[in-house]
């Protein structure tokens, strides 16, 4: 009687192993695919979906001015004595006032422009906590944040110029822009309640290098932002609007 030999072929064992490995790999891929489908199907929380509410400040309370009321009218030249009462706080266009031959680029006047080492900044929630160079009365310079500087200086006027840096994000999020500007005004108010704040318009531009839009669109954004700045000035106590953009626009 012939007996069937036992089939101990190593190749069969290897085949079994390979089949098991392939099965596990397929299982992993299927599991990953299922997880991916579930993840894509779930609504994602995007920054735009969760708009923060518009904040108000003490400066907003009971102000009933119209935008036209807050535009600074052209007056006779009041000279450097008037300008020397001002502190300038803004982006790079402000920084250049005290650099490279700007009108305040003198030993006496440089302290009026609160610059940081990078000579620029952007309006956001971090602005008031970022340090910059402050010149003490004795001429020494130290790095302080905005509340500290305003508390020490108690400026009669502060000219704020913000909006071009970050405009691509601001234009799609008016609430974020206005909240950040209100918070900045509020920080100044807390440190120096009597300071007269001037919000300067954003300058028009003739180039749009490094922006994702062309110059025409960028200038449209700037005009929109300036309308918002004017609205903001009208809604805050003791805040005015300097329409320098009109003077600079063809």
């Amino acid at each position: 009687m012939n007996r069937q030999p036992k089939n101990n072929n190593p190749n069969e064992i290897l085949a079994y192993l390979l089949a098991i490995i392939i099965a596990l790999v397929v299982l992993c891929l299927l599991a990953s695919l299922v997880l991916l489908i579930v993840k894509l199907a779930l609504p994602a929380q995007t920054p735009q979906d969760t708009q923060t509410e518009e904040t108000t400040t003490q400066a907003d309370a009971a102000v009933s001015l119209t935008p036209e009321d807050v535009i600074l009218a052209q007056t006779a030249d009041a000279g450097m004595e008037y300008i020397e009462k001002m502190i300038f706080f803004g982006e790079s266009t402000t920084a250049h006032l005290s650099r490279s031959g700007g009108v305040l680029d003198t030993d006496e006047n440089r302290r009026q422009v609160w610059n940081n080492a990078s000579n620029t900044r952007k309006l956001d929630s971090r602005l008031a906590t970022q340090t910059f160079y402050y010149y003490n009365a004795d001429g020494t310079r130290e790095e302080v944040d905005l509340p500290t500087a305003v508390t020490r200086e108690q400026p009669e006027y502060m000219v704020l110029s913000f909006g071009l840096n970050g405009i691509i994000g601001f234009i799609g999020n008016k609430t974020m822009y206005l909240n950040a500007y209100r918070n900045l005004i509020n920080e100044i108010r807390k440190a120096s309640p009597d300071t007269k704040i001037i919000l300067q318009s954003v300058y028009p531009v003739c180039r749009a290098d490094n922006y994702s839009v062309n110059v025409e669109t960028l200038n449209e954004y700037i005009r929109t932002l300036n309308e918002w700045i004017l609205e903001l000035a009208a809604s805050c106590e003791n805040v005015r609007y300097a329409d320098t953009a009109s003077v600079l626009t063809d």
């Binding site: 952007k122 071009l164 691509i168």
Partner: peptide, 9 residues
């Protein structure tokens, strides 16, 4: 939002 002025400064 910040790329343009970061690249400048």
């Amino acid at each position: 939002q910040n790329a343009s002025w970061y690249q400048d400064y």
